[in-house]
């Protein structure tokens, strides 16, 4: 779409219509997210346990406290480790799968799609049990690796720092790749299939088509999934709690998991928990801002 046509539609009436269209959603978000957020923000300047809260002294005490908190700094490191490794792999894999499955000549498309999507429909409870079973000392993964001669004796995956993190990443990839694929598949439908046919006639290789057509035209969707995955990873909770319980020795604990512990498992320290939550907000906001700057251009 061109700049001139969008300028044309920008008369006053349409401007107001636009505002009316987004009001219900915006109002709901204001009530359900911003009001509680403001309260949480105010809370982040309070100290104390449970209901016995008093103003923080000095005012940023909760914010400075987190940088001296070794468990929390460890959780930041872990979370960024997941973010940097897992998100790019997952999005690229999802993109490749989506473009393969978009091929009209492919047979059993529906079956493949459903199978690849299924992991994210599985309830967390089952997924956690299944993964722990697979990677147990006498689990299938060890069985295979030992029989293939790669390992001499079973390796205790969840009790070693690096392998525990890797398992969380594998878990995330397994669970969320199909989920992201859905967005790409639906995004691809808004691209005229004839473009692909034309490219084929012009003798473009699948790789060329992928980089020259699919990626640029899917840019809005890629941006969407990138922001969502960044947000999801920085708030990662389920995997840390259910797969490794943050262990061994906090080697895989995430920020949200620690915040949850501080709020519900330990003696509640809501002021501090709120302060840590706002650090997550700031981190996600910065990353999302960068992603928007790079990817959200109308041209």
């Amino acid at each position: 779409m061109s700049k001139s046509s969008s300028k044309l539609s920008l008369d006053k009436k349409h401007n107001i219509t636009g505002w009316i269209f987004l009001t219900p959603a915006a109002l709901l978000i204001f009530c359900m997210s911003f009001i509680p957020m403001i309260q949480a923000f105010l809370l982040s300047f309070k100290m104390g346990k449970g209901n016995a809260l008093k103003p923080a002294e000095p005012i940023f005490a909760n914010y400075s406290r987190m940088f001296a908190d070794t468990v929390f700094t460890q959780s930041i490191k872990n979370t960024f480790f997941y973010l940097i490794i897992q998100v790019p792999i997952m999005l690229i894999l999802a993109l490749i799968l989506a473009s393969i499955l978009n091929n009209r000549q492919l047979r059993f498309k529906g079956l493949f799609r459903t199978m690849i999507f299924l992991p994210c429909a599985t309830s967390l409870v089952a997924y956690a049990i299944i993964f722990r079973t697979l990677f147990a000392n006498d689990g299938i993964v060890n069985l295979v690796l030992v029989n293939l001669g790669i390992l001499n004796s079973p390796y205790s995956f969840l009790t070693h720092a690096t392998s525990a993190k890797v398992i969380i990443i594998i878990g995330l990839l397994w669970r969320w790749t199909g989920y992201n694929m859905v967005f790409y598949l639906s995004g691809l439908q808004n691209i005229e299939y004839s473009i692909y046919e034309a490219a084929k006639i012009d003798g473009a290789s699948p790789v060329q088509t992928f980089f020259r057509i699919t990626v640029p035209l899917l840019k809005p969707t890629i941006l969407l999934t990138a922001i969502m995955s960044t947000n999801g990873t920085l708030q990662l909770f389920d995997e840390s709690v259910n797969l490794t319980d943050g262990g061994p020795a906090n080697a895989s604990i995430t920020m949200s998991h620690y915040i949850y512990n501080m709020s519900f498992k330990y003696v509640p320290t809501f002021g501090y928990a709120a302060a840590m939550s706002f650090l997550i907000l700031i981190l996600v906001a910065i990353l999302a801002f960068i992603q928007m700057k790079v990817g959200d251009k109308r041209d």
Partner: peptide
């Protein structure tokens, strides 16, 4: 409206555990 959109995006960035009690 683009600015409002950015503000709305902020709404998802706070972990739910923090806003749950309010």
């Amino acid at each position: 409206k683009d600015a409002v959109m950015s503000v709305i995006l902020l709404a998802m960035m706070v972990p739910f555990v923090a806003t749950m009690i309010p």
